[in-house]
Amino acid sequence: MVAYLLFALTLGGIYGLLALSLNLIWGGAGMVNLGLAGFFAVGAYASAIVTGAGAPVPVGLAAALLAGVAAGLVVTFSTLRLRDDYLAIVTLGFAEVVRLVALNERWLTNGSDGISGVPAPFKAALGIAGFNLFYLALVSGIVLVVWALLRRLDGSPFGRALKAIREDQELAGFAGKPVLRFKLQAFAVSAAVAGLAGALYGHYQTYISPDHFQPLITIYIFLAVSAGGVGRPSGALIGAYGVVFFLEATRFVAEVVPALQPVQVAALREMLVGAALILVFYLRPQGVLPERIPPAPRMS
């Protein structure tokens, strides 16, 4: 039972990083990334490949950050000048291409077999229970650092400029903000955080494969961010832990609704995820933690 809790909390932290990543661009600049799973994969593979070649884990994490940035630039390069729906469609396609590359480029990614034996730092020395504790601490620590950095960013001139862009891109442009550069930077940072989450996942599970990175996880993260409150890093984090709890809790549907085939229970569970997302949009359009918008200066 303890192992299960540690696992859920660690996973919550990794989802939390993804949620922070999405929140930065969605809450920050009004852009969406429907290919989060792809960026998650890019980071996981980058770190697994680099550490597989003998580099230590911190170098792997750095490689994941860089790979995330690079992927982010590729995706945003041709879409930033366009309406945000184009970015949404392109990111969705990007995730599929990442999956195809991971599946087919055997020389790099070991193809559909996936990469097993991704180094789990200190697992041999700490034992299984010790490692689980250590890794929870590691992930939680990294989540805290990223959260603190993003909060500062949120309140910085850069963050305020992003929000201006979100509210009215043209107006922000007239006001002299370099809109495109800001959006590009925001997306790159966000992609890097998603990549980092992927690397942490890979080193935790010690195994990654193309099957890991399917679109459903992107929906989970959207649910996390919108439930927590778009635009608030703390909300995104709370939402992520909440989603892990929710996903696990839906397993017990089987006990509540008897006389269903297992496949129907599985279908019900996925319906619940979709329904939850729509309900959150209805009931709490602002999420658990509404965005704080400073009052406009009063004209006297």
Binding site: A3, G114, H212, A266
Partner: peptide
């Protein structure tokens, strides 16, 4: 106890954790 792996190792691991630990 029947769980769904969703043909996805990420979901499979979560389900296996629950089967094993809970």
């Amino acid at each position: 106890v029947s769980e769904d792996d969703q043909t996805n190792p990420e979901a499979g691991v979560r389900a296996a954790r629950k089967l094993i630990d809970v």
